[in-house]
């Protein structure tokens, strides 16, 4: 059996006395959509920050495609094929929509400043490729981010379109693993439905493996192959949506002690 795309092996992380993540094992296989759920403060975003290299694990190891990525610089990890979106949108506000996406190809291109000044054939070919990739990626979202929007500054986009732009930007960095941090947050019901379909399309058409943090249980139910529930930095349940959603430890984490028994009455 081949190595999983992403593997957490007994990962631990502490901030001073606070143990944010404890002895966490996690695996995401190629082509899977895995949801990470849990109440606020459970450590979901911390897991993302560990994967992307923002935090270095204090214990255990994190492997991408079988190779350890613990301790690598974030941009190196990104270049190895991990891209993410942010819970609080972080698009490059004062850059055009197209530039936002083109910027994310930096790590996968190589023209030097000198080549850019001399406009060498290799540089021009690369630049054409980057522009095509950007248009293609933005085209993934229908006509929402193309046409006149390409040249518009990102700050002029609506909230939902900024979320789409952020996903497009992540796609342009050509990842194998896509981390989506609450893609449906702040979306209206219609847009939330779109996110569900979009996530499936990202896997089926885009070929990405997806780890997603989501609070909206309809979305989680709609997209997940597997669900992992965290509480206080520990994995409390894992499996199908039905299994996890009815798991006593998960119900307890969300609703408090003592409610689990009444629920499963």
């Amino acid at each position: 059996m081949s190595a999983p795309l992403l593997e957490f092996d007994g990962v631990g992380l502490s901030f001073g006395g606070l143990r944010a993540i404890q002895d966490l094992d996690l695996r995401v296989d190629e082509g899977e959509i895995v949801s990470l759920i849990g109440p606020n403060g459970a450590g979901k975003t911390t897991v993302f920050n560990l994967i992307t290299g923002l935090y270095v694990p204090g214990a255990g190891d994190i492997r991408l495609g079988g190779e350890s990525i613990a301790g690598l610089a974030p941009h190196t990890i990104a270049r190895r094929g991990v891209a993410r979106t942010f819970q609080t949108l972080r698009v490059f506000l004062n850059m055009s929509v197209e530039e936002n996406v083109m910027a994310a190809t930096y790590g996968n291109t190589s023209s030097s400043m000198l080549q850019s000044v001399l406009r060498t054939p290799a540089m021009r070919r690369e630049e054409r490729g980057v522009r095509e990739l950007a248009r293609e990626t933005l085209g993934f979202f229908g006509d929402r981010l193309v046409g006149y929007r390409l040249a518009q500054p990102a700050f002029s986009l609506s909230y939902a379109n900024r979320r789409r732009l952020e996903i497009a930007r992540a796609m342009a960095s050509q990842p194998r693993l896509l981390l989506l941090d609450e893609p449906a947050a702040g979306m209206n019901p219609k847009e939330t439905g779109e996110i569900t379909k979009l996530t499936a399309r990202l896997r089926d058409d885009g070929g990405y493996t997806i780890l997603v943090i989501e609070h909206d249980m309809h979305v989680v139910e709609g997209i997940s192959d597997r669900v992992v529930a965290l509480d206080h930095g520990e994995k409390v349940a894992e499996g199908s949506f039905e299994h996890v959603a009815t798991h006593p430890a998960v119900v307890e984490a969300y609703l408090g002690k003592g409610t689990a028994r009444q629920e499963s009455r």
């Binding site: 923002l54 941009h75 490059f92 910027a103 790590g107 291109t109 023209s111 630049e127 980057v130 930007r169």
Partner: peptide, 25 residues
Amino acid sequence: ESRTGRAWRAVREDPLAAEMMTMPV
């Protein structure tokens, strides 16, 4: 207009996001 120029502007806008998007800030 090159990849370096775009990356600089990305760093100006949001260094953290730029780093996550493969740019060595």
